[in-house]
Structures are given as structure tokens and as C-alpha cells.
Design a protein around this nucleic acid. Structure first.
Length: 692
DNA sequence: GCAAGGTC
């Protein structure tokens, strides 16, 4: 019988919270196809609260893509096109079944563009077209019981169609641009070489690659300039202290040498002592980006890895939802309770927790950023029991950051002492922490390097123990690493909190970039150059900004989504026909660098037996990969096994024990590890010992 | 075979 209200939520934890907020203890948890859902009664009506798993539907081309451009797309279940989304199948089936008993619908997904599309596609494709007209919309900004109940009481009588329209347009535009331009790149190689090349472009990935490429070219163009550095080692009451010349870099050798010559007097006189005290305010709560850069700084974890570890901690109910862009901790999160619970976990946590709780009313120092659906990342207070390795480390970082935001500012004293030798000015610097404040809570993550100077007086003289004079060269700008480029993407508003790390991963997998100190391959550079010439729109960060303006215009009813989509088609038609006209020319150049880059990617190093090249080969009979010698045809049968899964990266090093090339293996969800190729190498027996 | 966006 159709008499129930179906409440559709974004994800399982949201469904649970919404069910409890609306039904209290009378909400009954049920399961269908292993998917949890909740039954409750409210205002005399039976309600069913059911979760989605993010987007259950995505866009797909209606006909196979033989040629481009293609604009004929439709929504299909995500699991039907994406192997990695297999889990979403049971959610589709469960919602479809539960919808059979429903004649009333409420969309309770996150109140933003994507949340609205998630709700819309579920109603349209699983509950029937009619449901779209009947459905109501709950609007909440946090998943607290209070907000959820308020959203129910003040429920919107219809769906938020403007938001839905904007969302559909966003999906469509990204598909049109991304898939067609990617197809154009791949087709050009196929046309010129009759070989398939997996190439891609997109609104986020291509501008990101462009940023990396610009840095790469800057480094390639860089010409080092010599400069000279003059420092003194001073004897301060038996202690050796370094003093730097006021001019930290001399670009004129003559001037540098004259300054050095003036230091022959061996006596330095203190001319001025400047003491400055300043406060270091406590940090702000972690959003995902903040956690990713801090985890890189403290542990060297890539943003992708941090995201995965945080996800595991979240699933173990130890931390709040990690894919947030909020730096706020609203009071509805019971700080006092959490602080008390954290105090139970360990002795060092207890000391901090007691100190914070002894203040009258703990108040967090919040940041500016917000998130429509979630607060900042915080520990739930749940006892983690025994965590190990990366999970333990990340958990401790999150707990200590949580403590720190409640701390008092630290008071730091810095000292600048001006000394003169001959007439040359030098500076000694000192720094010490007068009041630790929050730094005490943050522990080793906030360690401030202290330089304690003995007490000094103006007019005092010090003996020069040594004059240090060095020629150096200017360095090229640093390469981006995974953490710094993700931060840069955030600063430039490219991608979202949840997609930046995976999109970067994609650039690695395409062979556009490699290494932790990110290097752009010839292929990456060439793809950017080609697109810059034939489709500069997709290389530009402006495309994201333009999309945003269009979505806003749709939301306020200034323009229809059909109009926006039509315009995109016209623009793409022009671009893509120009691309196609030059297909052979583009393809010839591109296929050459593609082959070259792919070949380089496969080379692991020198064969220790014959000096040939060891490369990744896929066995014809078993389809498994192994390291084989390039001189196989000339009689060298040397080969080594390789791990079956994961990305293999050449390290350009050989093992000190066995002399075979070293490689790094990156597997999703695992720490990257380094190994040599020889399974019989003595280093491997050490491995086994360590594992035990 | 292709994007970016949710989710686990």
C-alpha cells in the first residue's frame, strides 16, 4: 500500500541523524540489501528515512562515442558506468523498492547544488516523474537535531528547482567540455598514428596542469646567479653565536670582498639591542585542506593519503566528517563533553583537557571558512583504543589541533642585536617562548625553534672567532609538491575539497606529471601547449569562474539552463571544428611525445647483467607485469617479478646491497614503499624480520 | 577508454 513518506538523504550518517532527530527513540533501524534505513511515525504519518551514497546517477553519452563533438547525454546509475562505484548499486535498488510504498516525498540531502541534484535524480529515476511535483524540501545548514527539526517544521513546499537547474547545468557543461576536448586529444593521436592514447582535459585538471607547467618552465629557464654571503662566528661568553651581515646576499663580488676585508679587526661591538614581544594567536580548526597541508608538513603524507586515513578515522567514529571546508566549531558540538572524554584517553591529553576545562567557558578560535553542510573536523571523544601508525599520527594531530584552538595565544620574545666589525653591520638573532599558551597543547607539531642568547649590553665587545665567507648561487623557484599544489588549487578556487586530491592523482596516472617534487613530463607540457593553442578556454582558470557566474544566474532565475547549455554547444562547436581541421598536425606531434613519455615511464633502470634497460613488460601469456631486459632479443634473459597492483615509479637509484634499480610502489590506501627489484636481495630478509 | 562532483 502506498501511504508512506519517503525522506531521501545524502549519505548513511545523515540518514541516521535525520531519523533520530525526527523520530527520537521510536525511529527503528531496518536493513534492505545491506542498506540501513529508518522507519518512524510523525504527525500520524509513517515515514521512511533512506540514505543515498552521494551521486547515484551520472551523465553518460546516449550513443557510443565514435566521433566528437557529442552533446547527446542522459542520466544513468553511477554503478553502471563506474566500476569503483559498485557499492552504489544496492542503494539504488533499496530506494527503488522503498519508493513503491510511498506516495509522499521529502528531499533531505545537503542544501547545496550537488545535494539538490542528488535528490532530484533519485526522485526522477527511482520514484517516478510525479514525485518531483509532490516533493518537499528540507533546508538545514548543519546536521544537528535542532536544525533538522527546524528544517522539518519550516519545510519548503516544493523542490528548490533553481538550484537543481543550476546543478544539472554544471554537470552538463563539465561533461561537454571535459569529455569532448579529451576525446579530441585522443582522436588526434589515433588519427595520426592509429594507436590509442588515453589523454584527458577538464575544467579543473587542465588549469592545474598549467600551473605546474608554468613552474616547470620557469625552472628550466632559470639561470643561477652567483652571490656571496658573509657571516661571523662570535664568541659570546664561551658560546659560539652566528651573526649575519645586514646585507644577506652580496651580488657584487668586489663589495663582498671589501666587507670581508673590513672584518679583520676581530672585535665586534654591540651597537643596539632590539627586544620585541609578540603574540602568536591559536590556530583555527581543521578543514580538509588545512588538515592535508599540516599532515604533509608534519608527516609527509600526500593529500590523497590524508584523505583516506581521515575517512577511516571517520568511519571508526573517532573524528567528525572530514570532507568539509568549514573552520567553524558551532557550540552545538558539545565541547565540554568532548574535552572530558579526550581526557580519559591518555595522561598527556588529560593534563591539557583539565587545563582547558578549568577556564570558565572554553571558546574555540574559529576561522573564516564555512561549509553549507558540515562543521570543521573535530575528534568525537570516542576512545580510539589502540591505533597504530598513520591512523594514530593523524588522530593525535587532529586531537591536539582541537585542543589548541581553545588555547591562549603564545607570547614570544624576539631579540635583534646589531653589532659592528670595522664599519660593517651584522645582526645576531634570538628567540624564546615566554608563555607557551596553545603551543603546549599542540606539542611537537607546534615546536618553535628557540635561540637563547646570553645576556648582552649595548657597548659590549665580542671577539670574532671566525669570518665565514661563501660563494653561493641563486636557486630556481621550488617545485610544487602534492600538498602545496592542492593548496594552490584551493587558493585559486579550482575543484572542491573532496576532488582536489583525486584530480591531482589523475594527472599522475595520465603520465602528465611525476615525483613528489612535481615534475611535468614532456607529454604534460605538450598537452598544455596544444590546448593553449586550440582551446585556451579549458586551460584558463576563468572557465571555473564563468561556470560559477552562470550557475548563480540560473539560481536567481536570470537565465534558463537550456540557454546556458545551448551557448556552450555553440562555443564548443567552433573550438572543436578548428581542432579537427588540424587533427593530423596535432596528432603527429602529440603521438610522438606520448610514445616517448610512456616509454620513459616504463624504464626502471639498468640491467645489472648486461647493461641494457630494465623495463616494465606485460606477459603475453599470463597478462601479469614483470621487469624484463631490453636485450631479451639479443640473449639477455634477466627478469624480476613486480607487484601486481599499484603505480610503479622509477627512483633513478640502485640498491646498495644488490645493485638492482630501486622503485617506488604507490597503492591506493597504502603507504608508498620503496624496494629494489631482486627478490633475493638481503634487504628483503630484513623486511620480513620487520614485519614479524 | 573521456570530466567533475558526490559518497565509501
Amino acid at each position: 500500500m502506498k501511504n508512506k513518506t519517503l525522506i531521501v538523504c545524502e549519505k548513511p550518517t545523515a540518514a541516521s541523524k535525520i531519523a533520530i532527530a525526527l523520530g527520537g527513540k521510536r525511529a527503528v533501524r531496518q536493513e534492505l540489501n545491506d542498506v540501513p534505513y529508518y522507519e518512524l511515525e510523525l504527525d500520524g504519518r509513517k515515514m521512511v528515512v533512506v540514505p543515498a551514497l552521494g551521486h547515484l546517477f551520472t551523465l553518460k553519452n546516449v550513443k557510443p562515442m565514435r566521433d566528437y563533438p557529442v552533446y547527446d547525454v542522459d542520466w544513468v546509475p553511477t554503478y553502471s558506468v563506474d566500476k569503483k562505484a559498485a557499492k552504489s548499486r544496492v542503494f539504488v535498488e533499496t530506494i527503488r523498492e522503498l519508493a513503491r510504498e510511498s506516495d509522499d516525498y521529502i528531499v533531505a540531502t545537503d542544501f547545496d547544488i550537488e545535494g539538490s541534484v542528488i535528490g532530484w535524480s533519485i526522485l526522477k529515476y527511482l520514484c517516478g516523474e510525479d514525485s518531483l511535483k509532490k516533493a518537499k524540501r528540507m533546508k538545514f545548514s548543519t546536521l544537528t537535531a535542532e536544525d533538522i527539526r527546524k528544517a522539518y517544521e519550516e519545510i519548503m513546499p516544493t523542490l528548490d528547482f533553481e538550484l537543481i537547474e543550476a546543478g544539472i547545468a554544471r554537470h552538463t557543461l563539465d561533461w561537454y567540455w571535459g569529455v569532448n576536448v579529451s576525446k579530441a586529444l585522443s582522436s588526434s593521436v589515433q588519427a595520426a598514428s592509429e594507436r590509442f592514447a588515453k589523454l584527458s582535459a577538464g575544467r579543473v585538471q587542465t588549469p592545474t596542469l598549467k600551473i605546474l607547467t608554468e613552474r616547470e618552465l620557469e625552472i628550466k629557464r632559470f639561470k643561477p646567479k652567483p652571490f656571496w654571503v658573509l657571516n661571523l662566528l662570535l664568541d659570546v661568553e664561551g658560546k659560539e653565536i652566528l651573526a649575519e651581515h645586514a646585507k644577506q646576499r652580496f651580488f657584487d663580488e668586489g663589495e663582498a670582498k671589501r666587507a670581508k676585508a673590513a672584518c679583520e679587526s676581530e672585535i665586534a661591538e654591540i651597537r643596539e639591542i632590539q627586544i620585541r614581544q609578540y603574540r602568536r594567536p591559536p590556530p583555527v580548526p581543521f578543514d580538509l585542506g588545512g588538515l592535508q597541508s599540516e599532515a604533509y608538513r608534519c608527516f609527509g603524507y600526500t593529500p590523497m593519503r590524508t584523505q583516506q586515513i581521515a575517512q577511516a578515522l571517520y568511519q571508526a567514529a573517532l573524528i567528525s566528517y572530514p570532507r568539509t571546508s568549514s573552520q567553524k566549531l558551532p557550540p552545538t558540538i558539545d565541547y565540554v563533553k568532548i574535552l572530558k572524554q579526550l581526557g580519559e584517553i591518555s595522561k598527556s591529553y588529560r593534563e591539557i583537557s583539565n587545563e582547558i576545562l578549568s577556564t570558565r567557558e572554553p571558546k574555540p578560535n574559529e576561522g573564516k571558512k564555512t561549509d553549507p553542510a558540515h562543521p570543521a573536523i573535530y575528534p568525537t571523544g570516542e576512545n580510539p583504543g589502540k591505533l597504530t601508525g598513520p591512523q594514530q599520527r593523524l588522530y593525535d594531530l587532529i586531537v591536539r589541533r582541537f585542543f589548541s584552538v581553545f588555547g591562549r595565544p603564545a607570547l614570544v620574545e624576539s631579540l635583534r642585536v646589531r653589532v659592528e666589525v670595522g664599519k660593517e653591520p651584522f645582526y645576531l638573532r634570538g628567540r624564546r617562548v615566554l608563555e607557551e599558551g596553545w603551543l603546549a597543547y599542540y606539542g611537537r607539531y607546534g615546536a618553535t625553534e628557540e635561540i637563547i642568547l646570553p645576556s648582552l649590553k649595548e657597548g659590549q665587545t665580542l671577539r670574532v672567532k671566525e669570518v665565514l665567507f661563501e660563494r653561493k648561487e641563486t636557486q630556481p623557484p621550488p617545485r610544487y609538491n602534492p600538498a602545496s599544489i592542492v593548496k594552490e588549487m584551493e587558493a585559486r578556487n579550482l575543484g572542491t575539497k573532496a576532488t582536489r586530491a583525486p584530480i591531482l592523482q589523475n594527472l599522475y596516472e595520465r603520465g602528465y606529471i611525476f615525483g613528489n617534487q612535481i615534475t611535468v613530463t614532456e607529454l604534460g607540457i605538450h598537452v598544455v601547449n596544444t590546448l593553449q593553442k586550440y582551446c585556451p578556454e579549458i586551460v584558463s582558470e576563468e572557465l571555473t569562474a564563468e561556470f560559477e557566474r552562470k550557475m548563480d544566474a540560473i539560481q536567481v532565475g536570470k537565465v534558463k539552463k537550456e540557454e546556458v547549455i545551448e551557448k556552450a554547444k555553440k562555443e564548443l562547436n567552433k573550438i572543436l571544428s578548428k581542432f579537427k581541421a588540424n587533427e593530423l598536425k596535432i596528432g603527429r606531434e602529440l603521438s610522438e611525445v606520448y610514445r616517448k613519455t610512456k616509454r620513459l615511464q616504463k624504464i626502471l633502470g639498468k640491467c645489472p647483467k648486461c647493461g641494457g634497460e630494465l623495463k616494465i613488460v606485460v606477459s603475453r601469456s599470463t597478462h601479469k607485469r614483470f621487469a624484463g631486459c631490453s636485450n631479451f632479443g639479443k640473449g639477455c634473459k634477466n627478469s624480476y617479478p613486480l607487484p601486481h597492483s599499484g603505480m610503479i615509479i622509477t627512483l633513478n637509484k640502485t640498491c646498495e646491497e644488490c645493485g638492482t634499480p630501486m622503485i617506488q610502489v604507490n597503492r591506493p590506501g597504502m603507504r608508498p614503499y620503496k624496494m629494489c627489484l631482486d627478490p633475493k636481495c638481503p634487504t628483503k630478509s630484513e623486511w620480513r624480520k620487520k614485519r614479524r
